[in-house]
Design a binder for these strands. Structure first.
Lengths: 191, 191
DNA sequence: AATTATATTAAACACTATGTTGACTATCTT
DNA sequence: AAGATAGTCAACATAGTGTTTAATATAATT
């Protein structure tokens, strides 16, 4: 009982198509990348492309979903563990992961990336904190949602600046700063 | 000595092309809008389109630049005036402007909008505040820049949520909240 | 190792959009 | 009213799209 995906030919095809697409994506905008172009670079027949994806955007979405899965799994490893990491260490791990996957992260989290994907990632990271914000005294549910939106996109902006600056500041620096900013916000607001 | 733009024919052509483009843009993504489609809707010959714009993205960029100019002029009216508005009233004016230009703002500031444009707008609005942040004691220039990036994109996220929610909360509510959040951040950080 | 199953290929197909051209017409400015 | 400029129209070559066919290559199965 084999999954279709297990076929080595399929794996190879998808792999080179993704590689070529990412290569092209780092040179120009997705709207100017043609399917023909991807296939020629990957040396894959165009008909084969259509056997797996509908268009460039479909391919992009599927690459993003994989990255999202990887990040999720990576984070699970630290949230579920008993090795008591405090919040700063937790977030530091995230920045280390971003640094290790710099090329992909630059493309998808960067200025030109997909906004939906970015929000999904940030929500994943921040969702642990929303509850305590909701329960804070003196803050209505609606207000809390706005603080939440502010914080999620704010973190994203800081990460994008970090990526654009060539990730010079250490993961530790970024972590301490963001934890201070994001964590401090609700209190500042209530106060 | 006439500028080309003064020609009524040119004005008309550009006007209907923009109208049709915006109409199409509110129905589907820019990547799926063809030049042929725009011209047919506007009842303008395709050759004429190419006389003014290179492609959809060029047209989009030019519409954005005009919107940016309008917002700038609008803001100047309040920052340069002597009618002493405090900061909350200032920001409230911005939200009133957004509300008046809901259709365009939704398209360009919303989730699917252009990120460059969004940052330009937010920087325009927030640049007055950066100096005092820079001069705050105990904050390095680099850290201040990250706080700035955090704040600008954070405000953007809150505005997008507001637009997505149908602009139900009053401009006053949004203004008071954002001033509290953005203004409070540097202090919280230092503290 | 031989057989079966399936993924990929190559070529052709009709279709649509692109970007440019040149001759003609309508409208502007002075 | 005259000259300049913008827009129209039709045609054109080019390029990408998405699908289909039979042939081929590779994987999985026994």
């Amino acid at each position: 009982m084999n999954r279709e995906k297990d076929d080595r030919r399929v794996k190879y095809t998808k792999m080179v198509l993704k590689e070529s697409f990412i290569k092209l994506l780092s040179h120009k905008d997705i709207s100017h990348i043609t399917i023909k172009e991807i296939c020629e670079d990957a040396d894959i027949n165009r008909a084969t492309f259509y056997a797996h994806y509908t268009d460039q955007y479909d391919l992009m979405r599927k690459i993003e979903n994989e990255l999202f899965q990887n990040v999720s799994v990576y984070l699970e490893g630290y949230t579920h563990n008993e090795a008591n990491l405090d919040r700063v260490e937790m977030v530091e791990k995230i920045f280390e992961y971003l640094k290790q996957n710099a090329q992909l992260c630059r493309l998808f989290l960067g200025e030109r990336g997909d906004i939906d994907f970015q929000k999904r990632i940030m929500t994943l990271i921040y969702e642990k904190n929303i509850d305590e914000l909701m329960n804070a005294q003196g803050v209505s549910k609606e207000t809390a949602e706005y603080i939440y939106a502010f914080t999620v996109t704010g973190c994203l902006g800081a990460i994008q600046k970090w990526l654009d600056d060539g990730m010079k500041k250490s993961p530790r620096f970024m972590s301490e700063m963001l934890v201070k900013l994001a964590g401090g916000l609700p209190k500042v607001f209530v106060k």
